[in-house]
Computed example of a mutant assay.
Amino acid sequence: MHRQQISSIAHSGHPIAAPLSDDSVHALLDRALPHGEARLLDLGCGSGTWPARAQAMRPSLRADGVDIDAGAIAAARRAADEAGLGDRVAFHTQDAAEFTSPHLYDVVVSVGATHAFGGLLPTLKAAGRHLSPGGSVLVGDGFWEREPDRATLDAGFTADEYVDLATTVDHVMAEGWTPVYGHVSTLQEWDAYEWSWTGDLSRWALDHPEHPDTGQALEAAAAHRDAWLHGYRGTLGFVTLLLRRTPTP
C-alpha cells in the first residue's frame, strides 16, 4: 500500500490534512479571503477542501489547487463538478514546488504541506512567488509545545525538526513576513484529527478483510496511533499563520 493511498484513506473522514476543526477552518478563511473578485492558490491541496470551502464562502472567488497525488486531484475534480464549481475551481496534478501559473494570487494556502517544499521557510519562499502585491499567505506547520523527549524522538522526529512557537514566529518575521492572524490547534483538535486518521484507516481495513493491503493498513494505523499516544501527543503543536509581506524601508 503506497503512502499516498494510506493518507487518502486516513483523511477520508477529516479532509483537512491538519489538526483543525471546521470552525477553525472557517474562521481562518474568513480572515484571509478578500471580498469581491479574487484568486486563491492551494499548494499541496490534497482532495481540494480548502479551495472548495473558500469558494463556497466567496462565490466570486476563483481558485487553483495543486497536488502531486493524482488520486486526490481526481477526487477534488469530482467533488467540484458535483458542487457545480467546475468553472470556478481548477485542480492540477503536479509537484507543488514546481507549479507555475500566469496568474498572481490574492491568497496562497499551504497548510500541512510544508514537507513538499522542505520546511516552513522554503514554503513561504515558494508561496511568495505566486502572491500578488498586498496578498496574504495562509500557512500551517508544526512546532514544539515543549522540548521533545525520548518518546517523541523515538516516534520518528528529530529534535531540530521544529522549534518553539515564539522562535517559529521570529523566523517567519525575519524572512520578511508579518503575522496578521494565527491559530494554535488545541489538544481537542489534535485528538479529533488523530482519532480520525487512525480510525478511518482501521475501519477501512476491517471492512475489507480480504483485501491484500488489509494487514498493512492495520499495521500503519497501529504504528501511527502508538507514535501519537506514546510519543508526540502534547509535545508536537500546530500553528496556522496568516501572513503579509513586511514593507521594506
Rank of each mutant, 00 (worst) to 15 (best):
His2Trp: 08
Arg3Met: 04
Arg3Thr: 02
Gln4Arg: 01
Gln5Ser: 04
Ser7Ile: 10
Ser8Leu: 11
Ser8Val: 11
Ala10Asp: 13
His11Cys: 12
Ser12Glu: 04
Pro15Trp: 03
Pro15Gly: 03
Ala18Gln: 00
Ala18Met: 02
Pro19Asp: 06
Asp22Pro: 13
His26Leu: 08
His26Asp: 15
Ala27Ser: 12
Leu29Cys: 09
Leu29Ser: 15
Arg31His: 09
Leu33Phe: 00
Gly36Pro: 03
Cys45Thr: 14
Thr49Val: 11
Pro51Phe: 05
Ala52Thr: 12
Ala54Asn: 07
Ala54Arg: 05
Arg58Trp: 01
Ser60Leu: 13
Gly65Met: 06
Asp67Gln: 06
Ala75Asp: 05
Ala76Gly: 07
Arg77Lys: 10
Ala79Gln: 12
Ala80Asp: 01
Ala83Pro: 09
Ala83Ile: 09
Ala83Gln: 13
Gly84Ile: 00
Gly84Asp: 06
Leu85Lys: 03
Arg88Leu: 14
Arg88Ile: 14
Val89Pro: 11
His92Cys: 05
Glu98Gly: 07
Glu98Lys: 04
Phe99Ala: 12
Pro102Phe: 08
His103Val: 00
His103Tyr: 15
Leu104Val: 11
Val107Glu: 04
Val108Tyr: 08
Val111Ser: 12
His115Gln: 14
His115Val: 06
Phe117Arg: 13
Gly118Ser: 02
Thr123His: 12
Leu124Val: 00
Lys125Trp: 00
Ala126Gln: 06
Gly128Tyr: 01
Gly128Trp: 01
His130Cys: 00
Leu131Gly: 07
Pro133Lys: 01
Ser136Thr: 05
Glu145Leu: 14
Arg146Pro: 08
Glu147Asp: 13
Glu147Tyr: 10
Pro148Glu: 01
Pro148Arg: 14
Pro148Tyr: 04
Ala151Leu: 07
Thr152Pro: 09
Leu153Tyr: 03
Gly156Trp: 02
Gly156Glu: 02
Gly156Pro: 02
Phe157His: 13
Thr158Leu: 11
Asp160Leu: 06
Thr167Lys: 08
Val169Glu: 09
Val169Phe: 09
Val169Gln: 13
Asp170Ala: 14
Asp170Ser: 14
Ala174Asp: 10
Glu175Gln: 09
Trp177Ser: 13
Thr178Ile: 05
Val180Arg: 09
Gly182Lys: 05
Val184Trp: 00
Ser185Phe: 03
Tyr193Asn: 07
Tyr193Trp: 08
Ser196Ala: 12
Ser196Lys: 00
Thr198Phe: 06
Thr198Ser: 14
Asp200Pro: 01
Ala205Gly: 07
Leu206Lys: 15
Asp207Trp: 13
His208Tyr: 15
His211Pro: 12
Thr214Gln: 15
Gly215Leu: 15
Gly215Lys: 11
Ala217Arg: 15
Ala221Asn: 11
Ala221His: 11
Ala222Glu: 03
Ala222His: 11
His224Pro: 02
Arg225Ser: 15
His230Val: 03
His230Ile: 02
Arg233Glu: 05
Arg233Asn: 01
Gly234His: 15
Gly234Glu: 13
Phe238Gly: 01
Val239His: 04
Leu241Ser: 08
Leu242Lys: 03
Arg244Ile: 04
Arg244Val: 07
Pro247Thr: 11
Pro249Ser: 08
